[in-house]
Computed example of a mutant assay.
Amino acid sequence: MHVQSMEDHSATRVAGLAVKGVGKTFPGGVVALDQASFSVETGQFAALVGPSGCGKSTLLRLLAGITETSAGYVEVAHLSGGVHPDGWLPVNLSGGLKSKGHPVGATGVSQHVLAARQLSGTAGEMQLRGARRAAVHNMGGLAVANYVGVLEAVA
């Protein structure tokens, strides 16, 4: 599979995800990826589409860090400093439910309250500038029940 973006991706541009010259060759000489290069900017959505056997799953495993590349590199912004308070993806600035004394961090109510405060501009010292959307993920029981809440600021 060969993926190429139509945009110029210079070294000075910071992407949410950057794949540069990535190749993956498995034992026996099976080439799953050959020189894949593209980037997805922060805030953009992307889809990976192709026929069976073209390398989609291999690329996803490379992006997740499950498989090592044979050539090139993958850079994911959250692994490059993007999750600090001024980063592109701040993560629960309160420290999470375990920091509040809950042994397993089971209830998502606190997460929803913090997200709502961020969006309404009432989060005090933890306030992020320009917060417009928030996502809250909560797993219940033995991860049998999963809930995702996506909140958006109302002007």
Rank of each mutant, 00 (worst) to 15 (best):
67 T>A: 06
57 S>K: 03
44 Q>W: 10
119 L>Q: 07
66 I>H: 12
48 L>M: 11
63 L>Q: 06
113 V>S: 03
123 A>G: 03
39 S>K: 01
119 L>S: 10
142 L>K: 01
35 Q>D: 15
37 S>F: 11
50 G>A: 05
110 S>H: 07
149 G>F: 13
38 F>W: 12
88 W>S: 14
54 C>P: 11
101 G>E: 12
67 T>F: 02
75 E>L: 09
17 L>N: 04
38 F>R: 12
28 G>K: 09
107 T>K: 08
113 V>R: 03
79 L>P: 00
56 K>S: 04
151 L>M: 15
78 H>T: 15
42 T>W: 00
16 G>Y: 06
148 V>N: 04
73 Y>W: 09
119 L>V: 08
75 E>P: 00
46 A>D: 06
35 Q>P: 02
100 K>Q: 15
26 F>P: 01
116 A>F: 05
103 P>M: 12
54 C>T: 02
77 A>K: 10
116 A>L: 14
50 G>K: 09
74 V>D: 10
149 G>L: 10
47 A>L: 13
101 G>V: 10
41 E>Y: 12
144 V>S: 13
150 V>I: 15
53 G>M: 03
124 G>L: 08
48 L>R: 10
87 G>C: 04
50 G>W: 06
16 G>P: 10
92 N>Y: 07
106 A>Q: 06
108 G>D: 04
56 K>T: 00
26 F>K: 05
47 A>R: 05
91 V>N: 02
98 K>E: 12
87 G>L: 00
68 E>N: 11
59 L>E: 05
139 M>V: 13
17 L>W: 06
46 A>K: 05
49 V>L: 15
31 V>D: 04
57 S>R: 02
47 A>F: 11
136 V>L: 03
28 G>E: 08
118 Q>N: 07
92 N>H: 08
102 H>C: 12
40 V>A: 10
115 A>T: 09
98 K>L: 15
152 E>V: 13
52 S>K: 07
49 V>D: 02
134 A>S: 14
